Simulated assay, not measured.
Amino acid sequence: MDVATYVAKELGYQPDQIEWVETKSADRENALSRGDVKFIAATYSITDERKEKVDFAGPYLLAHQDLLVKSGSDITEATDLNDKKLCSVTGSTSAQNVKKDFAPDAQLSERGGYSECLSALQNGQVDALTTDDSILAGYAAQDQYKGKFKLAGLKLSNENYGVGVKKGDTETVNKINDALKKMVSDKSWEKAVEANFGPAEYKNEPAPQIGNLVK
């Protein structure tokens, strides 16, 4: 939200002029093509498949798939999840990726949302939760969870977060790229990372260069 607010300001909009619209993962491309939103900044990974349908500014953050575990957990590698319960949200590929590539004997447990996975982790019903480290750090940084969870610090994938724009709207892409560069140069990017992830002791990657995707 800090990225979206900063970009909107550079496009000429004040915070009270922003209309926040929830867009589910499966509907992001349609929301842009229909013109429901001007741009989307929501852990939106830049992929070749998505680039066929929308244009991207950025990336503005390099994230990685990781594990969230209890603070005293001895899980330090993805292979430690063999014979353990791994939670992810219904429809996500994160847990399947872990089972396929690292821990074939992991027991997958799907929940309707990350909050349900967090409750299950806190109650000992599952041993770990997996998705992007930025999302996990955001939860771990919340007041009610401080000190209860930790990130394993794994880099199971590279996720280049971009700002999605309607296909063909090159002018908006260029303006957002300029805004993102300014956000980094005036230290607003660094402040946003610290404010959102600092309490979780999230070791973020440096700000990526515009157009520099890490495969």
Results as ranks from 00 to 15, higher is better:
residue 174 N to Q: 14
residue 4 A to N: 01
residue 165 V to I: 15
residue 214 V to R: 10
residue 110 E to N: 10
residue 141 A to P: 05
residue 183 M to T: 07
residue 80 D to F: 03
residue 67 L to H: 04
residue 112 G to I: 06
residue 129 L to E: 07
residue 117 C to T: 01
residue 186 D to S: 06
residue 143 D to L: 06
residue 59 P to S: 07
residue 103 A to G: 11
residue 116 E to Q: 12
residue 154 L to I: 01
residue 11 L to I: 00
residue 145 Y to W: 09
residue 116 E to N: 08
residue 55 D to E: 09
residue 65 Q to K: 14
residue 138 G to N: 06
residue 91 G to I: 00
residue 74 D to E: 10
residue 108 L to W: 01
residue 179 A to L: 10
residue 197 F to R: 08
residue 50 R to I: 09
residue 163 V to I: 15
residue 150 K to I: 00
residue 64 H to R: 12
residue 163 V to D: 09
residue 172 T to G: 08
residue 117 C to Y: 03
residue 14 Q to L: 11
residue 194 E to K: 14
residue 34 R to G: 07
residue 157 S to K: 11
residue 106 A to L: 04
residue 45 S to Q: 13
residue 167 K to E: 05
residue 82 N to D: 15
residue 172 T to K: 05
residue 69 V to A: 03
residue 60 Y to S: 04
residue 14 Q to I: 00
residue 62 L to Y: 12
residue 73 S to I: 04
residue 121 L to Q: 06
residue 17 Q to E: 12
residue 91 G to C: 01
residue 171 E to P: 02
residue 205 E to V: 08
residue 58 G to R: 04
residue 124 G to E: 04
residue 173 V to M: 09
residue 207 A to H: 13
residue 88 S to L: 02
residue 16 D to N: 15
residue 26 A to H: 12
residue 11 L to C: 00
residue 136 L to H: 03
residue 144 Q to P: 07
residue 211 G to A: 05
residue 54 V to G: 08
residue 156 L to R: 11
residue 146 K to S: 10
residue 36 D to R: 13
residue 56 F to Q: 07
residue 67 L to Y: 05
